[in-house]
Design a protein around this nucleic acid. Structure first.
Lengths: 361, 361
DNA sequence: CTGTTAGCGCTTTCAC
DNA sequence: GTGAAAGCGCTAACAG
């Protein structure tokens, strides 16, 4: 039963070296077929979902597989099925450092769908094409990018028929699928709250110049202020970090009398501003300086800060992104859709409270 | 030149459907060979490192490849070379949430070596075997695990000849390669500092029961205290979160006179303890309660906290882990080594200062 | 329900 | 320096 003749040639495999411990490094479907006395096709069928195979055969095969510790190679399988169950995740090192948990959330969602996440971090100087080519070389079923991709890269994916969903990014010219937080709307909402009470001198602390998210948020803040007839006293760009916010505040806030308001493009900077006020500048928050951020990171809610901010629904966004990609891969949806998720205002202690009941000042 | 006869059969490929836009979804080496009038072997050689190929031929092939936007399939290649350049990264959801940046650092290091990271998150209830089998099905060259793996899983990897490096974990019985922070030593160092000044009533806030890191840190704290002849007033287990620390503190600290000291198993909980003291309990830090943590996360250095803690050298650890794995994959190192990285004490403002010069109190 | 055959896209001897 | 042929481990089409 063991030597069931050589059906397929199956040449030199180093088997006959007669060394001890002849367990192969990775048993193949052929090995299992041999051991259970069936064909490779049958083994293959046993390891696929709804393939017709007799109960008894299945048992035999499963026993053999267990004995050999066999499990089918997804690599080899993918070569023929054209599906790897891999989703490529493109991130950029700095932006990822700013929002470490989006990777976690997206990873979680991807895993839920029975897929695996292949991560590629873009170098800071932006050789997008090479990274994309590399990720495509692994035959990923789809790509999620939380980094800006140039049109050439996007076209490359389209050519390869690999759908892409942009996370918190849109492509100006290209009709790319995307899930974004409504940064502009969120900021406008925030500004509306901040100016409901005398805001004093208003300073805008934007994100890095290269950040599209930062641009949107800054734009939202500007338009919100314009609507209220307010011109910001200063607009500067930070680097999304706590220290960046802290340093910016030092230069921006000292030497001015009367109430001030700082709107930061993200929470980390806003928290830096708060600490700069309290520990470097001797200013009170919110009495002297009202501060607001964007994201609603965990630290924003900590008692030491209680930062007024805009909650970005990362979890919902991650879920939407993965669902969108899945539908694109399955062909049950068309590309090009933009899903704009509504953020929520979180009023806490760093903005000045509205007057209890009556008229505004 | 285009119809160079059918050398290899190359059957139905859907090519002759005569539809418009006949660019194949993914050009193959065969396509490039056709276009440049050479054999597949030659195309293959052009796309490998030091293969002998004439200058002129190389140019022709490269031109054709560019025209077709071809790049070799790493999947197909891996089937024959037995190398995917994929490293499997096993994480566990909660522990990953506690230390989001280890994934970032490891990812960065992996990428530096020209490899890609395949992430798999273990479900909380620990079906380790299935996840490992799954990751092996992708033929990863090696595995880094920041989750505890059971012996069966480790054996499975060994059988498949896939090296594993454990990150911040050791396997009791199995001789696994690992890179760890010296949690015990770090805690002992911390305790030595804390007890140099009267510590008062000492409370230990450990990590979750299931966390090996937490166990080590707790153990280090205990042994350090024992050495100083101190018995902790209480030992409780937290969940590594800020809120967990905050809640634990409320129950632990109220209703006691005199100085107290809280040693937390990680910074997040320590910060929660601080805020609980200041905002919930009306206690001063460090005058009433000295607090210390472990990790040295970014927030620990923020002016609002200035937490005394132990710096875990994550960057160095990540680099060491990836190097270790690389050497294991290349066969230039033997498995089973444990690299213990020394942490550093960071004395800041939440521990009571030592008396300037003279005797202790 | 099961086996045979061909082939996914690539690399690799081995001739020439 | 280049090509022909075989095959990595698997699935798919088609008989039976």
């Amino acid at each position: 039963m063991a030597s069931q003749s050589e059906r397929t040639p199956r040449p030199n495999h180093g088997e006959d070296a007669a060394g001890p411990e002849r367990r192969p490094a990775r048993p193949t479907s052929y090995d299992v077929a041999q051991l259970s006395g069936v064909s490779q096709s049958t083994v293959s069928r046993v390891f696929r979902d709804g393939a017709p195979v007799a109960k008894s055969t299945r048992r035999k095969v499963e026993a053999a597989a267990r004995a050999l510790n066999y499990s089918p190679s997804r690599i080899a399988r993918s070569l023929i099925t054209q599906r790897t169950n891999l989703v490529g995740m493109v991130i950029t090192d700095p932006s990822n450092r700013a929002h470490p948990d989006i990777l976690l959330h997206l990873g979680h969602e991807i895993q839920e769908t029975g897929n695996r996440m292949l991560v590629v971090a873009l170098p800071r100087d932006g050789e997008t094409g090479q990274a994309l080519r590399d990720i495509l070389a692994y035959h990923v079923d789809g790509i999620i990018s939380s980094a800006s991709l140039d049109d050439a890269s996007l076209e490359m994916c389209a050519l390869a028929r690999v759908p892409v969903v942009l996370f918190n990014r849109t492509q100006p010219e290209w009709q790319a699928s995307a899930v974004c937080c409504d940064h502009v709307g969120g900021m406008e909402m925030l500004v509306r709250h901040l100016v409901a009470t005398p805001a004093g001198r208003v300073t805008l602390l934007g994100g890095p110049q290269w950040s599209p998210v930062g641009r949107d948020r800054l734009h939202g803040a500007m338009s919100g202020l314009a609507r209220a007839g307010i011109t910001p006293a200063a607009v500067v760009h930070g680097d999304y970090t706590f220290e960046g916010g802290r340093q910016a505040a030092t230069g921006l806030l000292s030497g001015h009398d009367g109430p001030q308001t700082v709107i930061a493009a993200n929470d980390a900077m806003a928290l830096g501003v708060i600490d700069a006020c309290r520990f470097d500048l001797g200013l009170r928050v919110p009495e002297d300086v009202a501060v607001a951020g964007f994201d609603d990171i965990a630290q924003a809610a900590w008692p030491s800060y209680r930062l007024t901010t805009v909650h970005q629904p990362v979890r919902r966004m991650a879920a939407a992104t993965v669902r969108m990609l899945t539908e694109l891969v399955d062909g049950t949806a068309e590309p090009g859709e933009l899903r704009l998720m509504p953020p929520e205002l979180r009023i806490r202690a760093t903005s000045r409270a509205m007057v209890p009941a009556g008229q505004p000042a």
